[in-house]
């Protein structure tokens, strides 16, 4: 119990540290939200209007007061309002986060469906034609930047063949078919790189496990090859594969920005980049904080699971 409380305490502390760092970092970067907002389109705003907007947005307050007000708001679960249009930040994140999670989730499913069987097959037929071709394709997929893949897909399937829309977003509730149609290309773009990683990882892990003593013993005992593969090789090889997949999915949480831009998918990463460009302090803080909390929560769950599985962790 003490271990659990300690871990939760550390997690809360981590979230506070992140909130403080983000608060200070975004304000240390030059750029005034009021000036940026009122000078859009290259016009010269009236300085008195800019000063007035700074007052309305509370930007004229001393930094310490802004910090105390921000932390107080966070304590009661309020992420504040956007400096641009006073939209509640929490509401906007709640709208955007599921879109990014959906994109990542769809990409993960595609990547697993493609990468895992291909990796397995390549390992079984090591050195064969399939292995060589698939390894070469995986190398290409990893070498080509994700925005190039996305742009090529748009050029071929949207602009060239007119098979798919170039990009955009419609909610599933409003138009399910159109939603899936719009999801397909960005998810596939992310999936290509991810599938290549999974392919390599699966191939290497399967080859590694296949050479272990217990596999040789199983073969010597006359266990059927199919059974060895499914029950012994794949099950043991899955551990590093799942770890790599989880790590990559975690980094995608804030890293789908290029795909979101190319396909006009309004997710969380795009929101963060736009907020930084506009110096929308509450929005930047809110998005970074939510991503951080998700990471910290994931780590907490993993730590607690380790403790559950391994008593040595519990007792230090």
């Amino acid at each position: 119990m003490l271990f659990v409380l300690k871990r939760i305490g550390v997690s809360v502390l981590l979230v506070w540290v992140v909130a403080t760092i983000v608060f200070l970092a975004i304000r240390m970067v030059p750029g005034d939200p009021a000036t940026i907002l009122l000078s859009q389109g290259g016009v010269a705003p009236d300085p008195a209007a800019v000063a007035q907007l700074r007052i309305q947005l509370g930007l004229n307050q001393p930094l310490g007061m802004q910090y105390v007000a921000d932390m107080h708001r966070l304590l009661v679960g309020d992420l504040g309002q956007s400096l641009q249009d006073q939209t509640p930040v929490a509401g906007e994140i709640l709208r955007r986060l599921p879109r990014t999670l959906e994109l990542i989730g769809a990409a993960a499913v595609l990547a697993v469906l493609l990468g895992l069987p291909a990796g397995l097959l390549a390992a079984i037929r090591r050195g064969g034609a399939f292995d060589r071709i698939a390894s070469w394709l995986a190398a290409v997929a990893l070498a080509v930047p994700i925005f190039v893949v996305g742009t090529l897909m748009v050029a071929i399937f949207a602009q060239g063949l007119h098979w798919a829309p170039a990009g955009g977003y419609v909610s599933f509730a409003r138009h399910p078919l159109r939603h899936l149609e719009l999801l397909a290309m960005p998810a596939a773009t992310i999936a290509i790189g991810l599938a290549a990683i999974l392919f390599r990882m699966t191939r290497a892990a399967v080859l590694d496990v296949s050479m272990r003593d217990y596999i040789r013993t199983a073969r010597a005992k006359g266990v059927a090859p199919r059974r060895i593969l499914a029950r012994h090789v794949l099950r043991n090889a899955l551990m590093p594969i799942v770890t790599v997949l989880a790590l990559n999915l975690g980094s995608l949480l804030g890293g789908t920005v290029l795909v979101e831009y190319v396909f006009n998918w309004p997710g969380l990463s795009g929101l963060l980049v736009d907020a930084v460009n506009a110096r929308d302090y509450p929005e930047v803080q809110g998005v970074v904080l939510v991503i951080s909390v998700l990471f910290v929560a994931l780590n907490l769950v993993v730590d607690l699971l380790y403790a559950l599985l391994d008593p040595r962790v519990r007792h230090g």
């Binding site: 748009v154 602009q159 798919a164 829309p165 170039a166 831009y261 006009n264």
Partner: peptide
């Protein structure tokens, strides 16, 4: 009025008939 912040995405949307 759908929003296409990326200029290439905007052009692609026009060329693909979106």
């Amino acid at each position: 009025m759908p929003v296409y912040a990326d200029e290439n995405a905007r052009v692609a949307a026009l060329q693909s008939g979106d």
